[in-house]
Design a protein around this nucleic acid. Structure first.
Lengths: 64, 64
DNA sequence: GAGCCATGTCAAGCATGCTTGACAAAAGAC
DNA sequence: GTCTTTTGTCAAGCATGCTTGACATGGCTC
């Protein structure tokens, strides 16, 4: 699963820690998602999508 | 998290086992999602959305 | 009634998502 | 060049997602 989180975060000028706080998760979770270590849960994906004002499909793309 | 899986499955006339096979998961997983026991992973949510030809946001709705 | 299909649910186990705490290294500010 | 911030990563532990196998119930057919 690819995602645009790092790019969207960069547009806002936020650090990983800034984004983590806005999403109410740990900084390590944000880092793991950006570096592709694992995919977010569906609820967290919704939070991310709402924060950046885009549909989930515009931020995440399944490998297949 | 609410979802429309049962309704969409009903429109297609599929049993939970039919849907499970198309999604490549167990019947118990489909049942658990429909009955709200837990949310699907993001990859599974994508599979469901593609199978029914709708965006994730049209099928799943976060509680908050 | 007997048999079949669909659904709900439980238990045990493995895989994934997320946590805190810690440390190292690169990048920027001064 | 030193200080601070940012990012990457590891470990251990808990919560959630998904598995197989099993059993109970209700509806339908015969």
């Amino acid at each position: 699963m690819k995602n645009q989180v790092r790019e969207l975060r960069g547009e806002q000028g936020w650090s990983q820690a800034d984004l983590a706080e806005r999403l109410d998760v740990s900084r390590q979770t944000v880092n793991a998602i950006e570096t592709g270590k694992y995919d977010p849960s569906l609820p967290l994906a919704f939070k991310i999508a709402r924060l950046f004002g885009r549909p989930i499909e515009a931020i995440f793309e399944p490998d297949a």
